[in-house]
Computed example of a mutant assay.
Amino acid sequence: MTKKCTITGKKRNNGYSISHSHVRTKKIQQINLQNKKIWSLTYKKWITMKISTKAIKNLTNNIKF
Protein backbone atom coordinates (compact mmCIF):
# COMPACT_ATOMS: atom_id res chain seq x y z
CA MET A 1 0.00 0.00 0.00
CA THR A 2 1.35 3.42 -0.89
CA LYS A 3 1.90 6.07 1.74
CA LYS A 4 -0.87 8.41 0.71
CA CYS A 5 -3.45 10.41 2.67
CA THR A 6 -6.95 9.13 1.92
CA ILE A 7 -8.56 12.56 2.43
CA THR A 8 -6.15 15.08 0.91
CA GLY A 9 -4.28 12.77 -1.48
CA LYS A 10 -0.87 13.94 -0.26
CA LYS A 11 2.10 11.66 -0.92
CA ARG A 12 5.88 11.68 -0.58
CA ASN A 13 8.07 14.51 -1.85
CA ASN A 14 11.41 14.29 -3.69
CA GLY A 15 14.18 16.56 -2.52
CA TYR A 16 17.92 16.91 -2.11
CA SER A 17 20.14 16.36 0.89
CA ILE A 18 22.92 18.95 0.62
CA SER A 19 26.24 18.29 2.35
CA HIS A 20 28.69 20.89 3.65
CA SER A 21 30.66 20.67 0.38
CA HIS A 22 27.36 21.24 -1.48
CA VAL A 23 27.17 17.71 -2.91
CA ARG A 24 23.51 16.98 -3.55
CA THR A 25 22.08 13.49 -3.12
CA LYS A 26 18.46 12.64 -3.68
CA LYS A 27 16.26 11.90 -0.69
CA ILE A 28 12.57 11.24 -0.16
CA GLN A 29 10.55 13.24 2.35
CA GLN A 30 7.82 10.96 3.67
CA ILE A 31 4.40 12.23 4.68
CA ASN A 32 3.38 12.16 8.34
CA LEU A 33 0.52 9.63 8.28
CA GLN A 34 -1.45 8.59 11.34
CA ASN A 35 -4.14 5.96 11.81
CA LYS A 36 -7.30 7.76 12.91
CA LYS A 37 -10.83 6.59 13.65
CA ILE A 38 -13.42 8.85 12.04
CA TRP A 39 -17.20 8.63 12.44
CA SER A 40 -18.86 8.13 9.05
CA LEU A 41 -22.28 9.73 8.64
CA THR A 42 -23.12 7.63 5.57
CA TYR A 43 -22.18 4.23 7.06
CA LYS A 44 -23.12 5.18 10.66
CA LYS A 45 -19.99 3.54 12.11
CA TRP A 46 -16.34 4.23 12.94
CA ILE A 47 -13.87 3.93 10.05
CA THR A 48 -10.09 3.64 10.53
CA MET A 49 -8.21 5.70 7.96
CA LYS A 50 -4.59 6.66 7.28
CA ILE A 51 -4.64 10.44 7.09
CA SER A 52 -2.01 13.16 7.32
CA THR A 53 -1.60 15.33 10.39
CA LYS A 54 -2.64 18.41 8.39
CA ALA A 55 -5.93 16.67 7.52
CA ILE A 56 -6.43 15.83 11.22
CA LYS A 57 -5.88 19.49 12.09
CA ASN A 58 -8.40 20.62 9.46
CA LEU A 59 -10.97 18.09 10.69
CA THR A 60 -10.68 19.26 14.30
CA ASN A 61 -10.80 22.95 13.33
CA ASN A 62 -13.94 22.52 11.24
CA ILE A 63 -15.95 20.90 14.05
CA LYS A 64 -18.37 23.43 15.50
CA PHE A 65 -19.71 22.94 19.03
Rank of each mutant, 00 (worst) to 15 (best):
M1H: 10
T2R: 09
T2W: 09
K3T: 07
K3W: 04
K4P: 02
K4Q: 07
C5E: 05
C5R: 01
I7F: 09
I7Q: 06
I7V: 11
T8H: 13
G9T: 00
G9C: 01
K10Q: 10
K10V: 10
K10G: 13
K10T: 14
K11S: 15
K11V: 14
K11Y: 12
R12T: 14
R12G: 15
N13A: 12
N14I: 03
N14A: 06
N14M: 04
N14S: 07
G15P: 00
G15I: 02
G15N: 03
Y16V: 12
Y16H: 13
Y16L: 08
S17I: 08
S17C: 11
S17Y: 09
S17A: 12
S17E: 10
S17W: 06
I18N: 13
I18Y: 12
I18W: 07
I18L: 09
S19D: 06
S21K: 06
S21R: 05
H22F: 00
V23C: 06
T25N: 06
K26V: 11
K26E: 14
K27C: 12
K27F: 08
I28V: 12
I28C: 08
Q29H: 11
Q30Y: 02
I31A: 09
N32H: 01
N32S: 02
N32W: 00
L33R: 01
L33H: 03
Q34Y: 01
Q34T: 02
Q34W: 00
N35H: 07
N35F: 04
N35R: 06
K36W: 06
K36N: 13
K36H: 12
K37I: 05
K37T: 09
I38R: 02
I38E: 03
I38G: 03
W39T: 03
W39A: 04
W39Q: 03
W39C: 02
S40W: 03
S40Y: 07
S40G: 09
L41K: 09
L41G: 13
T42H: 09
Y43P: 12
Y43N: 15
Y43A: 15
Y43D: 15
Y43L: 11
Y43S: 15
K44Q: 09
K45L: 05
K45Q: 10
W46M: 09
W46Y: 12
W46T: 14
W46A: 14
I47W: 04
I47D: 08
I47Q: 07
T48L: 00
T48G: 00
T48C: 01
K50V: 12
K50E: 14
K50T: 14
I51R: 05
S52Y: 04
S52A: 10
S52I: 04
S52G: 13
S52E: 05
T53D: 11
T53L: 06
K54A: 02
K54Q: 02
K54V: 00
A55V: 04
A55S: 13
I56E: 10
I56H: 07
K57N: 08
K57W: 05
K57L: 05
K57Q: 10
K57V: 07
N58R: 01
N58F: 01
L59P: 01
L59T: 01
L59E: 00
T60K: 13
T60I: 13
N61P: 11
N62F: 06
I63G: 14
I63R: 10
I63N: 13
K64G: 11
K64W: 03
F65Q: 14
F65C: 12
